[in-house]
Computed example of a mutant assay.
Amino acid sequence: MSVPHEGGETRVWRRRWQPVDEAHQHAYGYRPAVVEGQQELRLAPRLGEGLLFNPGNFHAVEPNPDGCRIAFAFFVGLTSTGHLVYWS
Rank of each mutant, 00 (worst) to 15 (best):
His26Cys: 11
Thr81Lys: 10
Pro4Gln: 05
Thr81Trp: 06
Ala71Asp: 02
Phe74His: 13
Pro4Ser: 03
Leu43Gly: 00
Arg15Tyr: 03
His24Glu: 09
Met1Ala: 14
Gly77Ser: 13
Gly29Gln: 09
His59Phe: 05
Gln39Gly: 05
Asn64Ala: 08
Ser80Ala: 15
Cys68Phe: 12
Glu9Gly: 00
Ser88Gln: 08
Arg46Lys: 11
Gly50Phe: 10
Leu78Asp: 02
Val3Tyr: 06
Gly67Phe: 06
Ala23Lys: 12
Glu49Ser: 08
Glu49Trp: 13
Gln25Val: 09
Gly8Met: 06
Ile70Gln: 11
Gly29Trp: 09
Ile70Asp: 05
Tyr86Val: 11
Glu40Gln: 14
Gln39Ala: 15
Phe53Ile: 10
Asn64Leu: 07
Leu84His: 09
Ser2Asn: 12
Arg69Pro: 01
Ala33Ser: 12
Ala44His: 10
Ser80Glu: 14
Ser2His: 13
Trp87Glu: 08
Arg46Val: 13
Phe58Thr: 02
Glu40Leu: 15
Arg31Trp: 07
Val85Met: 12
Thr81Leu: 07
Glu9Met: 00
Val12Arg: 04
Arg11Ser: 07
Pro4Thr: 02
Val20Gly: 05
Asn54Trp: 13
Ala60Gln: 05
Ile70Ser: 08
Ala73Arg: 15
Phe53Gln: 05
Thr81Val: 11
His24Asn: 07
Gly82Trp: 07
Asn57Ile: 00
Trp13Met: 04
Thr10Gly: 01
His5Pro: 02
Ala60Asp: 13
Arg11Asn: 05
Gly50Ser: 14
Met1Val: 10
Gly7Trp: 07
Val20Cys: 01
Val85His: 05
Leu43Gln: 07
Ala27Ser: 11
Trp87Ser: 14
Val61Asp: 00
Ile70Phe: 13
Glu9Leu: 01
Gly7Leu: 10
Pro45Lys: 04
Asn54His: 14
Ile70Tyr: 13
Asn64His: 11
Pro32Ser: 11
Ala71Met: 14
Tyr86Ala: 15
Pro63Val: 05
Val12Cys: 03
Gly82Val: 07
Asn57Gln: 14
Gly50Glu: 08
Glu22Val: 11
Leu41Asn: 00
Ala44Met: 09
Ala23Phe: 00
Asp66Lys: 03
Phe58Tyr: 15
Arg14Asp: 15
Ala27Lys: 13
Leu41Phe: 12
Val35Gln: 01
Glu49Asp: 08
His24Cys: 13
Gly67Cys: 06
Val85Gly: 03
Glu49His: 14
Gln25Gly: 12
Arg16Trp: 06
His26Phe: 09
